[in-house]
């Protein structure tokens, strides 16, 4: 039997999100993708269960890259989303920050890093999806490394050619797709 108990949820939920107006703003900016996510079953918030600890994002805004990042020119290596990009920028190759150049194919598989947007100081999840199936573009080559590790933790490595599931694994260029707020 389902029931919706506003009372037991309301107070704690409101307290958690009091002052968190930026969250609403983020969702609006990110568009329908997040808001249209499937509704899912959740635990009733109960004082008996302590909420799981959230990761500490503080150090992310303190790296050399984060301090010098800009938000206006996505063809430059210091654009905020490129905090851990490795390769040619698709924005210089006829594509865009989440767009592959003509004839190239975005890889469904990639790694996801986090970068800090200097405008709001918050961390965002960036999927560094490679565009594949064409020869190397070799323009605007960048190699940044915030929170990037080695290949035995592949989901945090940016040297791997992330072209799994595409017609060809020939690497053309890299995008930086915003996939959520961290």
């Amino acid at each position: 039997m389902i029931h919706f108990d506003a009372d037991s949820l309301g107070e704690k939920v409101l307290r958690r999100f009091a002052g968190g107006t930026s969250r609403r703003g983020i969702l609006a900016r990110l568009g329908t993708a997040l808001v249209a996510a499937p509704l899912f079953p959740v635990l009733p918030v109960s004082r008996a269960n302590a909420a799981p600890a959230k990761p500490d994002r503080g150090p992310e805004a303190k790296t050399t890259f984060a301090r010098g990042a800009q938000v206006t020119d996505n063809t430059k290596c210091d654009y905020w989303r490129y905090c851990a990009i490795d390769g040619a920028l698709c924005t210089c190759c006829g594509g865009g920050v989440h767009t592959c150049p003509p004839g190239a194919e975005p890889s469904p598989v990639s790694w996801v890093g986090t970068c800090v947007n200097p405008e709001d100081g918050k961390s965002y999840l960036i999927a560094y999806r490679d565009c594949c199936g064409k020869s190397y573009c070799n323009k605007c080559n960048c190699d940044n490394a915030d929170r990037e590790t080695q290949i035995y933790v592949p989901q945090l490595n940016n040297d791997i050619i992330w072209c799994f599931g595409t017609q060809s694994m020939e690497y053309h260029c890299s995008t930086a797709v915003l996939v959520g707020a961290a």
Binding site: M1, I2, A37, F40, P41, V42, L43, P44, V45, N49, A51, P52, K54, V109, S110, W111, V112, T114, L125, A127, P154, Q155, V179, G180, A181, A182
Partner: peptide, 22 residues
């Protein structure tokens, strides 16, 4: 009805960050 997640937003963020790439 299932009691499933304490913090669904964090769960989704964690999934995307740790698993969603692959």
């Amino acid at each position: 009805a299932q009691h499933v997640m304490e913090d669904p937003n964090q769960a989704r963020v964690d999934y995307i960050e740790n698993c969603g790439g692959c």
